[in-house]
Computed example of a mutant assay.
Amino acid sequence: MEEKVYNVLFLGTGNAARSVMAEALVSTMGNGRFRGFSAGSNPAGAVDPLALEQIAPTGYPAGALRSKSWDEFAAPGAPLMDFIITVCDEAAGEACPYWPGHPLTAHWSIENPAAFGDTANDRRAAFHRAFYAIRAHLNIFVSLPLHMLEKHALHHEVMAIGRTIA
């Protein structure tokens, strides 16, 4: 029996850093069990080069990453999501579009690396911290026995990841 591949959409505001890093990480850490996507409520129009720098060692194709609106994933014909996770506190407070298929939703508060640092080294360090915070969340997420948990228990576990790692 072929194992289900879960679609996971990570949401931010600008879709330039945290959500993009999460898209790449879940896709590479999930051993083929997860397909990552990312979007923003107010897309920046480009992925931050420091986010791409963090993603590069994962082997995820940088050409597949772009800053895009969350409206793409609410439109007819968009892939159905199993999980939608906000990684930005501002996006978590916004009114989201209707998501077809009733995916499980959760919020994982990750500090915005673009808001830190006056020097290039400080900014790079902030992106590094955000990348590893996302990776810590995803280490737990990708190890959940998704096929064994009923929907309510699964929702509780995914939400708890955001409260456990701060």
Rank of each mutant, 00 (worst) to 15 (best):
L11M: 15
L25Q: 03
E53H: 06
E53G: 03
S19V: 03
A46S: 13
A39W: 00
V47M: 10
E53I: 04
S38R: 03
S41C: 14
V47I: 05
P43K: 00
A46Q: 10
G40T: 10
G30Q: 14
A17Y: 07
A51E: 07
A51S: 08
D48Q: 12
G36N: 10
L50V: 09
E23V: 15
G14Q: 12
R33I: 15
S27M: 01
L52K: 13
G45E: 12
F37T: 01
L11G: 04
F34A: 03
N42R: 14
N31I: 05
M21G: 12
G45R: 08
A39V: 06
L9E: 02
G40H: 07
V26H: 03
A22D: 02
A16F: 03
V47E: 04
G40R: 06
S41F: 12
R18K: 15
N31A: 08
G36R: 03
A51W: 02
A39G: 05
R18G: 03
A22E: 00
M21W: 01
G32P: 14
L9D: 04
A22Y: 01
G45C: 09
M21C: 12
S27E: 00
M29A: 09
T28C: 04
A24Y: 02
S41N: 07
A22C: 13
R35E: 06
A17N: 08
G30W: 08
P43H: 02
E23Q: 15
V26Q: 00
V26R: 00
L50I: 12
E53F: 04
V47N: 04
S38K: 01
G36Q: 11
L25T: 01
R18Q: 08
D48L: 15
R33A: 12
D48C: 10
E23L: 12
A39Q: 04
G30F: 08
L25R: 01
E23P: 04
M21Q: 09
A51T: 04
S19D: 07
T13H: 07
A44K: 11
A24L: 14
T13E: 11
E23R: 13
S27P: 00
T28N: 03
N31E: 13
T13P: 05
A44Y: 13
R35K: 14
S41G: 11
T13F: 09
G12F: 02
T28L: 00
S19Q: 06
T13M: 10
F34T: 07
G12R: 02
F34W: 05
L52T: 07
R35H: 01
N42H: 11
S38I: 11
V20W: 05
A22W: 00
L50H: 13
N31V: 08
N15P: 13
P43I: 08
L11C: 15
G36Y: 05
F10S: 05
P43G: 03
V20K: 08
D48F: 09
N15Q: 10
A22K: 03
L11F: 06
N42F: 14
